[in-house]
Simulated scan of single mutants.
Amino acid sequence: MKKMVINTLACIALLAMSFFLASASDPSPLQDFCVAVNDTKTTVFVNGKVCKDPKVATANDFFFSGLRVPGNTSNKLGSMVTPANVAQIPGLNTLGISLARVDYAPYGLNPPHTHPRATEILTVLEGTLYVGFVTSNPDNRLISKVLYKGDVFVFPEGLIHFQLNVGKTKAVAIAALSSQNPGVITIANAVFGSKPAISADVLTKAFQVDKKVVDYLQSQF
């Protein structure tokens, strides 16, 4: 009987520990805020930014007016992303959230990319967007939808996703991201525009195309 009780308690303890580990997340801030100090001369590196004294923080540390300005979409892709992360708003440091405005010319594309450190939730303010993301291996399933003004769509952290303006007029969206510094990896730029370039032997085999195709694509980036 005693052995059974001990085994039962051990099972409960293991379950509790499993739940704790499964539900663990980044630690909460230990102060109201930690305004980032963008001092390139500092030799201190932390997982985030070094903080200024909270007593000298001002409203401008928590302010950014850049999202009111339409992005310039006169480029090959016909889109422009205006970020509002810790680089633009020092007061976001340690708060785990950021925004971005995305402007699209008619038929403009925000090309396939990933955010290695953030889930994204996109809200359409104007226009019509075809959006989607691709699940991880081995399925690589495309999950996509056409969005209209006021619609919302979520792109899970780390997965490749895109948005295409399928309307004849401009489109605008606001993206919220679950990191102060979500990062972005644009797939085509990373694969064909790396410095130094990835060996053509690697890319021809990976994409099953002729070397001339790889050379052409690398020349575009």
Rank of each mutant, 00 (worst) to 15 (best):
A206V: 11
V50F: 06
N165S: 08
C34Q: 03
P90F: 01
I89L: 05
F153M: 02
R117K: 10
F221E: 13
Y104I: 00
A188N: 10
V37I: 04
F153R: 00
A59G: 04
L9G: 09
S179N: 14
K2I: 13
S144I: 09
K52G: 15
T8Q: 11
N7F: 15
N181G: 10
V81T: 15
N93Q: 03
I174L: 15
K170A: 07
F64M: 07
T169Y: 04
N140T: 13
A175Y: 00
S219G: 15
L15Q: 03
N140I: 12
K195F: 09
K149Y: 01
V44I: 13
A57Y: 01
A22Y: 14
M80T: 08
R101A: 07
A84E: 09
D32C: 10
L203R: 01
A188F: 01
S25N: 13
P83M: 05
P112H: 10
L95S: 09
S79N: 09
S74N: 14
K76G: 00
G108W: 07
G150S: 08
L92V: 12
S194F: 13
V35K: 04
L92K: 01
P196E: 04
T94M: 02
V166L: 07
S179M: 08
L9F: 15
L122C: 08
S178C: 08
V184I: 13
G71P: 09
G96E: 02
P90Y: 00
V184S: 11
S178M: 07
F162I: 07
A84V: 13
P83D: 05
T94N: 02
G158P: 06
N85D: 15
G91S: 08
K211H: 00
M17S: 12
A171R: 04
F207T: 05
S28M: 01
R68I: 09
Y130T: 03
F64P: 15
V44K: 11
